[in-house]
C-alpha cells in the first residue's frame, strides 16, 4: 500500500536500528500516563471511607473513576507488554521460543485487560451490563 507519510517523515528518528523507536516512545508515553493514573489510584484507595464493598464500588462507579480505572487497566497492560517484550528479546536467544513466549504473554495480558475493563463496566453500570 502506498503511504500518506512523506519519505522524510518516515526516516526521522530512525537510527541504524531502523525500527523500534515507536516501541521505545510508547513505553515512555505509557510511563508518564501511569505516574498520573497510579497517583490517582492510590489517592482513591486512601480516601475510601472503609475498604468495604459499598465504598469501593461507589468510588469506582462514578463516571470519572470508571474512565480512569479503565485507562489504568489498559495502560498498565500495554506498558507491561512492551516491557516484557524487551526483556524476552534480551534473554531468550531462540527466535522460535521467543515468539511463542511473546504470544503467550500477549494472550495473558489481552485476557486480563478484557476482564479488568468488563469488571469496571459492570461496577459502573450494574450487573446487567
Amino acid at each position: 500500500m502506498s503511504t500518506l507519510r512523506t519519505p522524510l517523515r518516515r526516516v526521522i528518528g530512525l537510527g541504524s536500528a531502523k525500527g523500534g523507536s515507536g516501541h521505545w516512545y510508547s513505553q515512555r508515553v505509557t510511563a508518564v500516563a501511569l505516574v498520573l493514573l497510579g497517583v490517582w489510584f492510590f489517592a482513591g484507595l486512601v480516601r475510601l471511607e472503609d475498604g468495604g464493598y459499598e465504598s469501593v464500588t461507589r468510588w469506582l462507579a462514578s463516571p470519572l473513576s470508571s474512565a480512569l480505572a479503565i485507562l489504568l487497566v489498559l495502560t498498565s497492560a500495554w506498558h507491561a507488554l512492551l516491557g516484557l517484550q524487551v526483556i524476552l528479546e534480551d534473554y531468550v536467544a531462540s527466535k522460535g521460543r521467543r515468539a511463542v513466549l511473546l504470544l503467550a504473554v500477549k494472550f495473558a495480558y489481552a485476557v486480563a485487560a478484557v476482564v479488568g475493563v468488563l469488571a469496571v463496566l459492570r461496577i459502573a453500570f450494574g450487573a446487567a451490563a
Binding site: Y53, V56, T57, L60, A69, L72, V73, S76, A112, A113, V115, G116, L118, A119, V120, R122, I123
Partner: peptide, 10 residues
C-alpha cells in the same frame, strides 16, 4: 492482582 480485585468487586 489488580484485575482480580476489580473482578471481585464486580
Amino acid at each position: 492482582l489488580l484485575v482480580y480485585w476489580l473482578a471481585a468487586a464486580a
